[in-house]
């Protein structure tokens, strides 16, 4: 009987400690929740409500139109709205995302492994900073610099001539439809690869060296160690990086915007965020632009869910 009472008393104690901790936890979480509610949830709800209206930037009133904006966007044929349809934007966004995020995840992982294998800390530190530097540069400035380099007289075209062993050829980096898409991917890749390298380095540093030592003692080759030890233990970081990279690519805007401001053709690179911008800000159709942003939100939600569900992100224990 005494024992039962003791257990009960311990349970009550534990329960009250948990409750106390939970209260403190809640207190510390409240600012974050308030922040998210104001700056994330409210705009999403507001955008959804606006997407059900015909709101225009300059008009003082708007009319409830139900799902007309969505119906209009999905019913557009190839030539509607001068060719700047939702379908074209989804195509441009997916092309950009696949063309950027897969190479970015793979190459940033390889670079991170390469940097971690460097024995001299100073070399590693220097290269980390060098890779990371473009990420701190404003996207607008970075794109403006790259556009000068993509000019027919610029560095990239000159290098292309050297590599392809031609002289005076214009590779039309800003003109040709495919080259233009590749140019935007290149700028984005250059700008963000350092950021993901740093994330991978953080993940790699968390793997205990004893595991590698044991593998070396067992005679595992470097290749084998990478595939059998590094990659499985790095899985949570890989999932995190790939989701972040994918979401960032789906939200890309400033690179494409700057290119079109510089005279490049809009249609090949009219990613959905840019279409939202032109529809809402330039043409003042806020209802239609909000419908597009809700569609983008759902696309991002779907891809994130798919990625989570296919990668089975169980915690890794060392």
């Amino acid at each position: 009987m005494k024992e039962i009472l003791q257990v009960k008393s311990n349970r009550t104690k534990a329960y009250s400690i948990e409750r106390k901790q939970a209260k403190w936890g809640l207190l510390f979480t409240v600012p974050c929740l308030v922040f998210f509610s104001i700056f994330s949830f409210y705009p999403i709800i507001n955008a959804f409500i606006t997407s059900l209206t015909n709101k225009q930037a300059l008009s003082r009133t708007s009319k409830f139109v139900g799902f007309d904006n969505y119906a209009y966007l999905f019913a557009q044929n190839d030539t509607a709205n001068g060719g700047f349809t939702l379908w074209n934007s989804l195509r441009a966004t997916l092309t950009f995302t696949i063309g950027t995020f897969i190479p970015m995840v793979v190459i940033s992982l390889l670079v991170a492994v390469l940097l971690m294998s460097l024995r001299k800390d100073r070399q590693r530190g220097f290269l980390q900073v060098a890779y990371y530097l473009p990420a701190v540069l404003s996207s607008v400035v970075a794109t403006a610099i790259w556009m000068i380099m993509f000019d027919p007289r610029g560095l990239v075209n000159q290098l292309s001539n050297v590599v392809m062993m031609t002289t005076g050829k214009d590779y039309k980096w800003l003109v040709d439809t495919n080259m233009l898409q590749a140019s935007t991917m290149l700028v984005y890749f250059w700008k963000y690869i350092g950021y993901f390298v740093i994330l991978f380095i953080t993940g790699l540093a968390a793997i205990p060296p004893t595991i590698y030592e044991a593998a070396t003692v067992d005679g595992s080759s470097r290749w084998h160690t990478f595939w059998r030890i590094t990659l499985p233990l790095l899985k949570p970081t890989v999932v995190l990086v790939s989701i972040m990279a994918m979401l960032q690519c789906l939200k890309t805007f400033s690179t494409q915007y700057m290119f079109t401001q510089g005279g490049a053709s809009r249609k090949p690179i009219d990613v959905i965020t840019m279409n939202i911008y032109f529809t809402g800000i330039r043409n003042g159709r806020l209802g239609r632009a909000s419908a597009m942003s809700i569609i983008l939100f759902l696309v991002m939600l779907l891809f994130t869910y798919l990625q989570f569900s296919t990668s089975k992100t169980d915690d890794v224990e060392y």
Binding site: S265, R266, N283
Partner: peptide, 17 residues
């Protein structure tokens, strides 16, 4: 403003695409 944008994009498509 919207017509100006459409003209711009159409001329760009003709010249570049």
């Amino acid at each position: 403003t919207e017509i100006q944008s459409l003209l711009k994009e159409t001329v760009a498509a003709v010249m570049l695409e």
